[in-house]
């Protein structure tokens, strides 16, 4: 029993896309599917302009919009507070896409190739398509699950392990002595789109 969460330090993140690549390599997601992704934003006016990267993933909310609208209960919070999808009872109605304010879900109809059409499918891609089908399946929404398999070995999610700036910190929000609880309290941690009222468990630390 835990309540897993993540802290992303925007002061440390320099938008290198390592987390995006690590997620794609580990989860074998097809082209166009980004369980972890990065937005680039700007602030300020011409001579004083700042650019900032914003890594986004499933926020594993306490009151998730996707769970509220799911007609079958296929998407739910497991005992670790991680939002997961039971693909055996999902109907694929895609209502959860409309309930998620962060656009964390991706529908995959088939495993498209990374290479131009007409080229032979590489053995690696065949393996990835099989692995993806076993894990997530087609015709249902897919999303980040905080790397459930890595967590079962006691490791942190692959985006956290790959971050060269150590901007991502993974931990237990229930444990008051954990690093992420400390960071959220001491460095004014905030969440995205608080007005929707989903209470995300992925916190951000301000860039300045």
């Amino acid at each position: 029993m835990a309540r897993y969460g993540m802290v992303i330090d925007l002061k440390r993140c320099y938008g290198c896309y390592s987390c995006v690549m690590a997620c794609k390599v580990k989860n074998h997601t097809p082209p166009g599917v980004f369980w972890a992704r990065i937005l680039k934003g700007e602030a300020g006016k011409y001579p004083n302009v700042v650019r900032q990267a914003l890594p986004i993933l499933c926020m594993h909310c306490e009151d998730p919009g996707c769970v509220k609208v799911c007609p079958t209960g296929a998407t739910y919070l497991d005992e670790d507070g991680v939002c997961v999808i039971d693909t055996d009872i999902c109907v694929g109605c895609k209502y959860c896409f409309m309930g998620c304010p962060y656009g964390a879900r991706y529908a995959v109809e088939e495993w498209g190739s990374y290479f131009p059409e007409g080229l032979p499918v590489t053995p690696l891609e065949e393996f990835q398509a099989r692995a993806f089908e076993e894990k997530s399946g087609f015709g249902v929404p897919t999303k980040c699950d905080f790397c459930a398999d890595r967590r079962s070995f006691g490791k942190e999610p692959s985006c956290v392990a790959a971050c060269p700036a150590e901007a991502r910190i993974f931990g237990d929000l229930d444990d008051p002595d954990s690093e992420i609880s400390f960071l959220i309290k001491t460095r004014r941690g905030f969440v995205l789109k608080p007005e929707v009222g989903t209470n995300p468990k992925v916190y951000y630390l301000p860039p300045r």
Binding site: P71, T72, G92, G139
Partner: peptide, 25 residues
């Protein structure tokens, strides 16, 4: 025809009151 998994469509009726799709069904 729009559902991703038509074979599961009957499950929508098993949990009434969870969502507007369930109530609408």
């Amino acid at each position: 025809a729009d559902l991703g998994k038509v074979q599961n469509a009957w499950r929508v009726a098993t949990k009434p009151g969870t969502s507007w799709i369930a109530r609408g069904t």
